[in-house]
């Protein structure tokens, strides 16, 4: 018998979930909580094997609850049940230390399977979750590097062109070139254009 606690601020869902699991002999719903703080109160007195945790809750949300459980080194498996399904949410949930993620409308069969898997193996990742994470990893849409346009501006500055000349060359206004220059200096941690020239030579943007 896997001992389960449910944390969700939404009573209809919480009790619906308890009712859904009630007829099953492999799981037992030990406690219900309205938010993260109540979860932590319950865990002080009770041992629980799997926590079904919602993310959006008042007072203490799912993320903070996971972090707090990790901090207190409470031994249990956390299965996040949430309405959120975007890659950013899934990734942040797993990064926070949850053992598995499921959307709220997953259905009884899959839910029981997930509870069992996470209890036995310590993790549960559905094919859907893996797909989301893989796509997110593959599509690198985020960078702290300088952009191709910024590289062009660096090259032209290092070549000794004036702001007006660069603006004409790139079909941009002086104002935009100036913004680029400021952004480049910020990103490269430089104070002035002289540093830019040095950077351009070192990074092979221009030949010395």
């Amino acid at each position: 018998m896997i001992r389960i606690a449910i944390a969700d601020d939404h009573k209809v869902f919480r009790e619906g979930l308890a009712a859904l699991l009630a007829g099953n002999k492999t799981v037992a719903v030990m406690a219900q909580a309205n938010n993260g703080k109540q979860v932590l109160e319950i865990l002080k007195d009770q041992s629980v094997d799997v926590l079904l945790l919602d993310i959006e809750m008042p007072k203490m949300d799912g993320f903070d609850t996971i972090l707090e459980i990790k901090k207190r080194a409470i031994d249990l498996k956390i299965l996040v049940l949430t309405m959120h399904s975007s890659p950013q949410f899934v990734r942040n949930i797993l990064r926070a230390g949850a053992h598995g993620y499921l959307p709220k409308d997953i259905g009884k069969t899959t839910l029981l399977e997930a509870i069992d898997t996470v209890y036995r193996t310590g993790k549960y990742h559905s094919a859907e979750t893996i797909k989301i994470i893989m796509e997110d990893l593959r599509d690198d849409t985020h960078s702290t590097e300088i952009s191709p346009r910024e590289k062009e501006v660096v090259r032209l500055i290092a070549d000794g062109h004036t702001t007006q000349e660069i603006a004409d060359e790139l079909y941009l206004s002086k104002h935009t070139i100036e913004s680029h220059r400021k952004n480049i200096l910020l990103k490269l941690g430089l104070k002035n254009s002289a540093g830019l020239v040095k950077y351009a030579i070192h990074s092979g943007l221009i030949y010395a």
Binding site: V12, F13, L17, K104, G107
Partner: peptide, 24 residues
């Protein structure tokens, strides 16, 4: 937005779960 997402969404999800169980 949050109420729609969590409360209404949650209720719909639960209704779907229950119907799913009934159907099975």
């Amino acid at each position: 937005a949050r109420d729609l997402h969590d409360s209404v969404g949650g209720s719909l999800a639960m209704a779907k779960n229950i119907l799913q169980e009934v159907s099975e």
